[in-house]
Amino acid sequence: VPDRKMSSPGLMATSPPQGDDPKESLDEEKVTVLLRPTAGAPILKNKKYNVSRDKTAGWINSFLRKRIKCLPDEQVFLYVSQAFVPSPDQTVSNLYECFGSDGKLVLHYCKTQAWG
């Protein structure tokens, strides 16, 4: 196995943040998550949260359920990139690295399936 420089430029596909690196200005262990309602879902007073990287999509879902006062028989769907529902055990860290940009991870939420 040839020993190659692992951090060679271009190896990683993360989109470089514009301007100042927002990750540096923020606690390294946290990610800024923006929660946006869609398909008529209740609007949150606070849309922006700093979430620990080790939290999961399932954790955000439970958090959201409490915030928008969901009834036990109501469902809440979280969407990444307005395209897919992440696995409940997917970490915020992975989601941010793959689908975040400009230091933020945008998640859309709704009570009925909005996409797919």
């Binding site: 196995v1 692992m6 190896l11 596909a13 993360t14 992975n94 690295e97």
Partner: peptide, 21 residues
């Protein structure tokens, strides 16, 4: 938890990125 972070199939020099990388 599982790790899933973006990795391209090739380097900027168009070399394939290997499992070892």
């Amino acid at each position: 938890p599982f790790i899933q972070e973006p990795v391209k199939p090739t380097t900027t020099e168009d070399e394939p990125i290997l499992l070892s990388d």
